[in-house]
Nucleic acid binder design. Structure first.
Lengths: 247, 247
DNA sequence: TTAGTTAGCGTATTATTTACGTTAACTTTG
DNA sequence: CAAAGTTAACGTAAATAATACGCTAACTAA
């Protein structure tokens, strides 16, 4: 057992990759941070919403807390997907400056637990985010970010893609009622491919958890589509793993 | 930014769930630990091979180091699969006693990165393990373990099952040359199900990375089977993800 | 009224999965 | 040394799922 000379400078944090979907784009929630750069002027850039964990705080709860503090959202699909702990992830001068300014301590190393979550962007949570200096940014156009947060987003996206292929999680990103086309577009944007609308419809409607509503679209310049909702209870009941293995 | 009153008692460790396969059983490598229990006598139980990370040490490298220190094995398929950081994971009296005895410090909280790896149990690494107070134990019969290590194993096994369904990783657990039947048994044991031998053979032999050797079994009381080997290069070349999504 | 657009249903083809029959090649046993 | 027992290895048929398209319906805008 090799207990290193441990000191006050090792910290643990959580970072949340919060995906949202609007105007046919997959977006991540980023918050603006300010730091004093080497020439003494105030600069800005972006980072993932995250925070150090409290000394007795559970990691999952810390992630939920951060999410709630930044978006006001509670009880959201939120999952740990990786840890990032390279010793050199704190090395850029602006990151060191920002850590010192905000914590008042010289921080040498932070290991972070990355969580991802999917939320339906609504006016309410969007307003809340804006108040907290947060913005929704298209994942295809993320600017330079603090620390290794760009890598974390890339990993989170890969994780999202993988999960979307195997589980019906796309619904989390859509409003309560949605059309089949909206769902398909979401798949196409996240998976970055195009899908045949007839086959997509066939496949998705075969699943029992897609419940057709009586309401149709209105005011559209084409045949109006029925709205659907996702029935979580039906899904949970029918969720049994297939025994096939593919490789 | 909420930097908690951080103190010397927060630590990060790595724990390795090392799977092996022999005598038709899936096994985990556990090491014996000794601690002084509340009545003052010396007791024993088991824990996963793991260690605190060094102050500047990368997590992945710490896992590799631990694995090598305990088994002598290098360059092994080794993957982070989850983090365990519940504040109450250090609460049992024997765990507290053992931590104090081995580190000389009062440790309050340890967040651990769990890695899993698959190795082919050979006489060489088995001897090495035994020297280091380690033993291979059938995953179906793991005794009471230190901390939350039982949970970590359960999670690691679930991860192994999931991966085995999607990628040809079973080979990692077998010797260089093996028969189709041996591979099938491995799948059956890990996935805890029975598979049709004719269909299994068909499916597995369709893949180009299964290379048939000239050598056959000998001394068996039935038609001798051909040996095969796994060609990693061929696999890497043909590895391209399918575009289908299933849910 | 017509043109443009997406919704929604259907069909044919191909691939994959599942279920199961049968012969081949070895050792052990009587 | 023949018969019995065992697993290997190949094959076939049916069911299921994936893929590639064709076509009509129902709305708005012009």
């Amino acid at each position: 057992m090799n207990l290193p000379g441990r000191n006050i400078n090792l910290h643990i944090s959580v970072d949340c990759v919060i995906f949202g979907f609007s105007t046919n784009q997959l977006k991540v929630l980023l918050i603006k941070r300010a730091y004093t750069n080497t020439s003494g002027t105030l600069s800005n850039d972006h980072k993932l919403p995250g925070d150090f964990i409290a000394i007795k705080e559970d990691l999952d709860l810390a992630a939920s807390r951060t999410l709630e503090e930044l978006t006001g959202l509670k009880d959201i699909y939120l999952q740990q997907f990786a840890f990032f702990g390279r010793p050199d992830r704190i090395s850029k001068s602006m990151d060191i400056a920002w850590l010192t300014e905000t914590t008042g301590h010289k921080i040498q190393r932070v290991v972070t637990a990355a969580y991802y979550s999917l939320i339906n962007i609504t006016d309410t949570n969007s307003d809340f985010a804006i108040k907290n200096n947060a913005t929704w940014i298209d994942v295809k156009q993320v600017p330079d970010l603090a620390f290794d947060h760009a890598t974390i987003i890339t990993n989170g996206l890969a994780h999202l893609q993988l999960t979307l292929r195997n589980e019906p999680i796309g619904f989390e990103l859509l409003p309560e009622k949605f059309t089949v086309r909206e769902l398909q577009t979401l798949y196409e944007v996240i998976l970055d491919c195009s899908l045949d609308n007839r086959n997509f419809r066939k496949k998705i409607l075969k699943s029992t958890y897609m419940v057709q509503l009586e309401e149709k679209q209105s005011g559209v310049a084409h045949k109006p589509a029925y709205y659907y909702r996702f029935d979580r209870n039906i899904y949970e009941k029918h969720k049994k793993e297939s025994l096939g293995f593919n490789f």
